[in-house]
């Protein structure tokens, strides 16, 4: 009995304050809100161990390193000499646009050599939705904003992180005759990083994808398709979920009726892979988190 009490006391000493610290200096008041502000900048970090992140570090990382390792002997040949369209020394073309001959060759960018530092890893997940009706009536976006908020819980500069942008409104860039004008809000997007990213991924893989009847996997492009496209060298895996799939997210499932209209969304898994074959390396990583792929 006494041992139980002692172990409970030890646990409580780790998990709770015994007594709130005494505030000796008077707290400043925020000039706008009038709320007391602490003397120090408070930043929140991880508040629980992340299962998927641990899975990445204990299992996936090793396997991905073995699978994507490219053995290179000696130094790489120097990059191709790039010739400019116009003579750069010519005073006429000196400060003018002078593109290299043959284009930027972005699709031929070689992958960095294999090293422990650039084993492929997940950098962020971007959720993105476009609501067509918002062009006519921007209040149609409210449902999509609330839906993203419920899914991710992200807020602007949430947890004191200045780089966290929360839920962002996407505005139109171009003018398309009779339909869209620049600067009209048409969509919503969220960037997830770190713990929030792994939590969302876990929810997606465990609650949503197994319950989708007509989803067998992300469709891979046919084998004959070109590997020299900008998308295949940028290490991003994307797919979309229809509005009917969103009801399976537990965050939305609890009160589906509260949303006037659910909007489907695109999900982009952004990895650090770059160069030729980057998308394949990104797919290998994402499939390690149990996202299925399917070849038609």
């Amino acid at each position: 009995m006494s041992m139980q009490v002692a172990s409970q006391a030890a646990r409580h000493s780790l998990t709770r304050f015994q007594r709130a610290p005494k505030i000796t200096r008077k707290l400043r008041r925020h000039p706008k809100t009038g709320l007391p502000t602490p003397h120090v900048k408070i930043v929140t970090r991880e508040f629980a161990p992340s299962r998927l992140e641990e899975h990445y570090h204990t299992t996936l990382k090793d396997d991905l390193m073995y699978m994507t390792y490219k053995h290179e002997i000696g130094e790489r040949p120097p990059p191709r000499q790039i010739r400019m369209t116009f003579d750069p020394e010519d005073p006429y073309s000196k400060y003018r646009h002078n593109a290299p001959v043959g284009g930027s060759q972005f699709h031929k960018k070689p992958a960095p050599s294999s090293s422990p530092d650039n084993v492929v890893r997940l950098e962020k997940i971007q959720l993105h939705t476009m609501v067509k009706e918002a062009v006519a009536n921007k209040s149609q976006l409210l449902s999509a904003i609330m839906q993203m908020k419920a899914l991710t819980g992200e807020t602007f500069q949430g947890g004191g992180h200045h780089a966290v942008e929360g839920i962002q409104i996407v505005r139109a860039k171009k003018s398309v005759g009779g339909w869209i004008r620049p600067n009209v809000p048409v969509g919503v997007k969220v960037d997830l990083k770190g713990q929030a990213m792994y939590d969302f991924l876990g929810t997606l893989v465990e609650f949503v994808l197994p319950r989708l009847r007509d989803f067998n996997g992300i469709i891979l492009p046919p084998q004959s398709s070109s590997i020299k496209t900008p998308s295949s060298v940028s290490g991003v895996v994307s797919f979309g979920l229809p509005p009917s799939a969103l009801v399976f997210f537990p965050q939305i499932e609890v009160n589906v009726d509260a949303y006037p209209k659910l909007a489907g969304m695109h999900i982009h898994f952004v990895t650090n892979a770059i160069g030729v074959g980057a998308q394949d390396r990104a797919r290998a990583l994402v499939s390690g988190f149990q996202i299925p792929f399917l070849r038609r």
Binding site: T15, E46, F47, R51, E54
Partner: peptide, 23 residues
């Protein structure tokens, strides 16, 4: 491969509960 998540050390437990309290 591991089939359980690693148990937190006392330091990690304290750190996580501190962060959860701030949150």
């Amino acid at each position: 491969a591991p089939i359980l998540t690693r148990s937190s050390t006392p330091f990690e437990t304290a750190y996580y509960s501190y962060q959860a309290r701030i949150r």
